[in-house]
Design a protein around this nucleic acid. Structure first.
Lengths: 339, 339
DNA sequence: AATAGTAGCGAGAACGTTAACGAAAACTAT
DNA sequence: ATAGTTTTCGTTAACGTTCTCGCTACTATT
């Protein structure tokens, strides 16, 4: 059986004072004589006292836990975001409780509905594609639980959102392809109902328009976010087009990698015959050959700002929802070099 | 301000019965009439009642949280292990609280010492290299908190441990290199005081011995686990050896990748001139060119069994510490092909 | 008919902490 | 010396559960 932990009662008894005084001394606020505070602190240290979060949580109606709901952590972007989140959470004495949806809307809904909301002070969420059915989130938000969305956000929920600059990032990527001389540029992207997808798509379309290139719907493929999706998108693209594309803008690096792998299989020279650019700046971009041009997302920063934003919501109930966009930067590598 | 949550008092009041009965009905145990239980359940559902974990945790002296202490999550192995952990934790109604040590002993010690042990039912840990100074863990174990170590474990702590079969995996890797005709095999590995390092090293040494190859200490390099460490290990290896190695056994794939990158830089033909093999089976093995031979670790399984083991400790105080070794499998790819 | 047993429920304490209130002690100003 | 302030502390009631008793009203047994 677990040993009983030291409580403030033990400290109080040892010092022959009341628990209230101990509590006050420990919290270093309120009116308490500095000498007695010293004694309390010393005794707490001696007994190796650790506060009981269940008890404080009960009375203060707050735990120091924030929930992170995320599709997966086995990829660079998500794990880096979480690292950023963890960094600021730790600095403020908050714990991270991890929930993995496995990119399944059903799992996500179940997680959110089963959530024992009373054990969380707030939530950081990166949603799965749902065809705009986010009732489960709206419910907990209405309950008053602070929620901040990041990366994949739903466009019809009023809550704080943190995203990279998807529109301008996509625009820069496509403009770069055009500058390199590519003309028939395909876009392999994610589910339609995510804001991220929409913004990158509109960045893509705008870049084409401004350069007087036509937007060909048969060059736009919506599917999932995985490397395998990238591979199958390429098959589709070459199957359904009489005139093959000469460049691929992938919604993320994993799909870009998939595209490169598929194109290599077809013995198409990447760079020279077909340009490929991704989005994220996964370290794998520098390992694959040819190295993959991309748009760097500030994943770590996104994690940090999402968490700080959430903490503001937690601390001030009236803190207004806020949209933050972090800039993304074009990184040119071999996969878009003609030479 | 947060809306007040529904409690069992509300259910009791609505049904005009006592809280004790509601509590019993909800827990579906104890003596309670099946009709009143139905009524309670119906009302709980109607009011959307969610139990308050702080309250139950207080009285039962247990939260449903397990802590995961891990160096980082931005790599395939760790994130996959966590995915496995999360899977079984979720199935048993446990939450995961994530702590990242950033591979720093100081950070790890601080995390463990600051741990509000009362808010955790158990801990899953993958330690940093410490030169056998694990007092911080020993203390919480002595306090009665169940701890299960995985992957990187300390050899002088008595607690349950879950590892891949490092010895046989390493042996298989080196035997494979020898079978391919490589003769001067270097080993670039991790910190000396980790059991993992020691076991892989002894697998390496044993394979050499059995094949009548001499163990050359100048071919064994201890450093960190990162890709950058792999790169610098190669420089070291070529700088300090008059007779260069003709094969590299890397303690993990990231160092293997680093080695490949460094060797490519030197224009040394991988496979033909020098064989390279890693350990992990990171998906990146199939993306890099040449593809990297490796020993596949059952990362997901390690996560799952670690967590199940921890749950057994949590549920039965007297459950004896146990060592579990999961087998690892040789995977041959291009980086060890002579042809 | 008397007793024992059992099913079903309620009262109240406990878990460890904080917060509202108030009281004693010490100090200040008159 | 007296009244008024502060400073410092203790009492007590919460927070939402569970758990130990014990009570009532049946049913079964003799």
């Amino acid at each position: 059986m677990r040993r009983r932990y030291i409580t403030i009662k033990d400290i109080a008894k040892a010092l022959d004072i009341s628990v209230a005084t101990v509590s006050r001394a420990l919290r270093d606020t309120y009116d308490v004589n500095s000498q007695t505070r010293q004694k309390v602190l010393a005794m707490a240290n001696e007994l190796n006292y650790k506060p009981n979060f269940n008890a404080t949580g009960l009375v203060k109606r707050s735990t120091h836990n924030i929930g992170v709901i995320i599709p997966a952590i086995t990829n660079y972007y998500f794990s880096t975001v979480i690292t950023g989140i963890q960094e600021v959470a730790k600095d403020h004495g908050f714990n991270l409780i991890l929930f993995l949806t496995n990119d399944s809307p059903e799992v996500e809904i179940k997680i959110v509905e089963d959530l024992s909301v009373s054990s969380l002070d707030g939530i950081l969420a990166c949603v799965s594609a749902h065809e705009n059915n986010y009732a489960h989130f709206i419910e907990i938000i209405d309950d008053g639980l602070p929620v901040v969305f990041f990366d994949r956000v739903a466009d019809n929920i009023t809550a704080s959102k943190v995203m990279q600059d998807d529109y301008n990032g996509a625009f820069a990527a496509v403009q770069h392809l055009i500058d390199c001389g590519y003309k028939r540029i395909a876009h392999i992207t994610g589910p339609k109902d995510l804001l991220l997808t929409q913004k990158r798509l509109s960045g893509y379309e705008h870049a084409l328009k401004i350069n007087n290139l036509t937007i060909d719907p048969s060059l736009i493929i919506h599917s999932g976010f995985s490397q395998a999706d990238g591979i199958s998108d390429i098959s589709l693209l070459f199957a359904q087009n009489t005139q093959a594309p000469d460049a691929i803008f992938a919604v993320n690096d994993r799909k870009g990698i998939g595209a490169i792998l598929a194109l290599k299989q077809k013995n198409i020279l990447i760079g020279k015959e077909i340009g490929v650019i991704g989005f994220t700046n996964d370290p794998i971009c520098e390992i694959i050959s040819p190295t993959l041009s991309t748009v760097a997302e500030p994943a770590y920063e996104i994690g940090k700002t999402s968490c700080s934003l959430l903490l503001k919501h937690i601390n001030k109930a009236a803190f207004a929802a806020q949209n933050v966009t972090l800039s993304a930067e074009l990184i040119v590598r071999e996969s878009t070099q003609r030479g």
